[in-house]
Amino acid sequence: MTLAMNEPVQYQFRLFVAGDTTNSAQAIANLRALCRAHLPDRHTIEIVDVFHEPARALADGVFMTPTLVKLGPLPGQRIVGTLSQLHAVLQALGLGGIAE
């Protein structure tokens, strides 16, 4: 238990995008910037292109792009949009404390 406490929490994201569309591209860029700044070395990002893998969007209940799904740590969360409002996103992800 002691060991687990000392381990940094890993953030696991899945971002659904629609090809090269502008908003999707922005969402990817914003997510990467956010992770680099606030979650260095403790995040994984998976990008899913709905043009290529529509079935996975269905499986995850995603109906719009771009949609960010936080798979871990629980509780899970989803955010739709370009993720450009950094403060709101950090709050939503429960990272508000870190941002300050």
């Binding site: 629609a18 908003n23 999707s24 709905v50 269905l58 109906f63 739709v80 949009g81 450009s84």
Partner: peptide, 13 residues
């Protein structure tokens, strides 16, 4: 204007 695509019931974007 922040959304690019929506997916249909069959998942088709």
């Amino acid at each position: 204007g922040e959304v690019d695509a929506v997916l249909g019931r069959d998942g088709a974007p």
